[in-house]
Amino acid sequence: MSDVKKIATRESYGNALVKLGKKYKNLVVLDADLAGATKTGTFLKEFPDRHIDCGIAECNMMGIAAGLAATGKVPFASTFAMFASGRAYEQVRNSIGYPHLNVKIGATHAGISVGEDGATHQCNEDLALMRVIPGIAVLNPADDIEAQAAVEAAYLHDGPVYLRFGRLAVPVINDNPGYKFEIGKGIVLKEGTDVTIIATGLCVWESLKAAELLERDGVCARVVNIHTIKPLDEELVIESARKTGKVVTVEEHSVLGGLGSAVAEVLSEKAPVPMLRIGIQDVFGESGPAAELIKKYGLDSDSIYSKIKNLCKGEK
């Protein structure tokens, strides 16, 4: 597994925009002085007339995106997740969400894997913030293949979409001919009978590795990739709970309000089973290399494995 190809989903975002830009003339890209980091710089080079740098003013950028969408363009407003969902929250809610304008928000540098920049830039709350806005689709792709597919799906989707991307290069796991991306449809990556691991974003890879470790102990885990936090694939979540009797969610996000909460909301009402939410435990992050932080905050495969082993203890 060590020689697996790695690419950051923010790179995928930039690459997908260039491809789509050739195909769709009404696609425009906005940035707030971070085109180099959000990887939209490639789009800027290719289509300088359709790239709009708003300067360091994310609230205004969201409003400009709304105005562009109201006049028939499909804007991708790009910045760090912290500023897209945090600073500009109310602009996203009132200027984009409420009028249901066709704006796509490309939020890069999400989660703790931002690394060295530390807590001010590690947004572990964006899924929660975006998920509560009515009518907005929230996507959190796991790898390069999925991220590129998500960008095109977002373009084709009529209405606001929040896309979450990471800074860290992550393994490509969906490189197979049968791969198909559909907003709102989760993907079963591994079948299992003892427990279901529902993961999103870079935690999908870590969860697959954890499932391999569990297999050695005789715990057969089903692994589900939920790339769409909203609308959540409730059917798959319920089916998984009924099939395996236990559900563990894994996300690079606070355990409050994100995937874990979304799954718990569904299961508590429709198919209650024992649950464990793995994620950031209601704390701020800190500076450090991404891989070390992922380990320290319990999102690496070994940590996931131990927690699930504990959950399943005594039953085998």
Binding site: V28, D49, R50, I52, C59, N60, M62, G63, I64, A65, A66, G67, L68, A69, A70, T71, G72, K73, E90, Q91, N94, S95, Y98, P99
Partner: peptide, 24 residues
């Protein structure tokens, strides 16, 4: 009504986006 508004300070940004769109 060309734009939903009411949260102060936001309408002008949307208007700027529309004007930019016309120019583009």
């Amino acid at each position: 009504v060309d734009m939903s508004s009411g949260s102060l300070g936001q309408g002008i940004s949307a208007a700027v986006g529309m004007a930019l769109s016309a120019k583009m």
